[in-house]
Computed example of a mutant assay.
Amino acid sequence: MSRISVRGFAVASATAVTAVGSVVGVASGSTMQGNNDAEATASGTTLLADIPVGQQAQVQTASLTQQADAQAIAADAGARKQAEEAARKAAAQTAVAKKKQADAAAKKAAQAAQDAKEREDADEQASRDATRDASDFSVQSSYTVAQIQSMARQMVPSAQFQCFSNIVDHESSWNYQAVNASSGAYGLFQALPASKYSSVGSDWQTNPATQIKWGLNYMNDRYGSPCDAWTFWQANHWY
């Protein structure tokens, strides 16, 4: 059988047997049956034996290189697909974790707000309950500072008493008959006009408990609590 001409390296590598095993088999000198040669020739396939000996090694190398390249491309595509899938899973897990953290933070904030509201309501209720005892004190002809402070302790919630006391210290030094000579402000809280005390009792000039009741109501109504009133006083030196 005559050797076919090879039309350049590109034609040879394209028409060579692509299966590595077949190429190696032909290159090793294996003989083929006559009818197989006829079938191969009829199909238009160029056998490795039909390629000049000097180019056979190049054809084999080109075939193996093409297969290696194809395998590398497939492996690279598979690796990219796995990396993308892993990235998607990681992003989803991160999103779930962040949502859980946000939900937990929101729940914690809501609980803190609820606790603060309950404490505020409890303090307000305690203040209201305490003022009901103002009329329980018997009227005396005079009162010492210690007696007036004792009344206040029984009327003002314990958590608010120090703030309440701070304001009274600055306004009147616990003198329920203190008068500001220039303005006419009067009593424990230096109410102006002094007649404001009458909103809780007509004996405001002689009964410190009545003044205490008025002062506590004023701080709660205007500022929310004695401690809030004291915070304002510290910033402004009046309340």
Results as ranks from 00 to 15, higher is better:
E120H: 14
Q154L: 02
T46F: 10
S30Y: 09
T210E: 02
V96A: 15
R128P: 03
R119V: 06
A116T: 01
A102S: 13
Y176P: 07
G215W: 02
T94N: 13
F137H: 03
G201T: 05
C227W: 00
D169H: 09
A113M: 09
Y186G: 09
Q56W: 07
A27G: 07
N36V: 12
S2K: 10
A152H: 00
D228E: 09
Q111V: 08
I148L: 10
K81T: 14
Q190E: 11
V96N: 14
A126K: 09
L192V: 04
A122C: 03
D169C: 08
V53K: 14
K100W: 03
A62L: 10
D115Y: 00
C227L: 06
A79M: 06
A95Y: 00
A38K: 11
S150E: 10
T41N: 13
D69G: 09
Q154E: 04
F189P: 13
I212L: 11
A91P: 08
A229C: 06
Q160E: 08
T131P: 05
F161M: 01
A49R: 11
A10S: 09
R222I: 12
D123Y: 00
R128K: 13
A209Q: 00
K81G: 15
G187K: 01
S172M: 11
G8P: 07
E39V: 14
A116I: 00
A146D: 13
D136C: 02
E171M: 00
R132Y: 08
N35T: 12
A75V: 04
V145I: 12
